[in-house]
């Protein structure tokens, strides 16, 4: 069995690695929750890269239905074709197109399937997928065909906890909560993005960053993607290292709300 040990571009904590491997061995979906910006979506990419497997991403929106992931029967096209005398209108299979889940099932080799932000969809959405994820097969009544997974895909599901997921669904998943990285892990993560960043600059950036995160007045705390952007801005602007903690330049990159910026300016010494 292949094992995931993190990748060049993704720094994962020990716990996360364990959870990912447990999910793969047990062939259960891995459900990832965590603060925004802790790299939930990136994880699937990293796993796909590390195991050298194809990644199929199914982005969930508020209008997504479970059916969309299985297959779509394009009745309109068929109607259209039939009225203009197109070829092969009798062949329903021609009008059945597989969704992302169907694509993952029919792939010739094992793939990674990322169901991104499952909580965006309707409350019933996860329940509608129970059978399919459990048995890794679904039936297309229009053609009488049953699509069965040739190779069980590795399923990774992310959630921002906007909606509660149903118990029946949760019971089938391996769960992992990504904590916000501590200073050391964050340093490592930054290093991955900026391999030759000056150590002094990094220290200063981390100090300022974690001080900002600890301020109770800040409503929307900056996350990993913000610190990366910030370093980029600092590098680009050529800000002197000793000014970073003192003045927090380019604050707009870190804080996205006006009241947060005001609160910080008022309390920063």
């Amino acid at each position: 069995m292949e094992e995931f040990r993190g990748s060049q571009n993704y720094v994962a904590s020990e716990e996360l690695l364990r959870a990912a491997n447990i999910a793969m061995v047990l062939q259960k979906p891995l459900l990832i929750k965590g603060e925004p910006g802790t790299g939930k979506t990136m994880l699937a990419e990293a796993i796909a890269q590390a195991l050298n497997k194809k990644l199929i991403i199914w982005n969930i929106k508020s209008t997504t239905k479970a059916q969309d992931g299985l297959y779509v029967y394009d009745v309109v096209q068929r109607l259209y074709d039939s009225q203009f005398g197109g070829e092969g209108v009798d062949d329903i299979a021609k009008y059945v197109r597989l969704g992302k889940l169907g694509e993952a099932f029919t792939a010739d080799e094992q793939v990674i399937l990322l169901i991104d932000e499952i909580d965006k969809a309707d409350l019933e959405f996860p329940n509608d997928l129970l059978w399919e994820l459990d048995r890794m097969e679904f039936h297309i009544p229009e053609t009488g065909e049953t699509v069965t997974a040739k190779h069980r895909p590795v399923v990774i599901i992310t959630s921002n906890a906007e909606k509660e997921l149903p118990d029946a669904f949760l019971r089938r998943c391996v769960f992992h909560y990504i904590e916000f990285p501590d200073k050391e892990l964050m340093a490592e993560i930054v290093r991955v993005h900026f391999p030759d960043l000056d150590q002094k600059l990094l220290d200063q950036v981390l100090e300022a960053f974690y001080r900002i995160r600890q301020l109770p007045q800040i409503k929307k705390k900056p996350s990993t993607s913000e610190i990366i952007d910030w370093i980029q801005a600092l590098q680009h602007g050529g800000v002197a290292v000793d000014r970073i903690v003192k003045e927090v330049p380019y604050l707009g990159v870190l804080l996205k709300k006006n009241e947060d910026i005001d609160a910080l300016r008022a309390s920063w010494k």
């Binding site: 716990e15 364990r18 959870a19 447990i22 929750k33 997921l165 118990d167 391996v174 769960f175 909560y177």
Partner: peptide, 18 residues
């Protein structure tokens, strides 16, 4: 430690229950 993590990620499904 491995046992602890294994139990947690299979038995607990919400960080509120950690």
């Amino acid at each position: 430690t491995g046992f602890y993590h294994l139990c947690r990620c299979l038995l607990v499904k919400s960080e509120a229950d950690f």
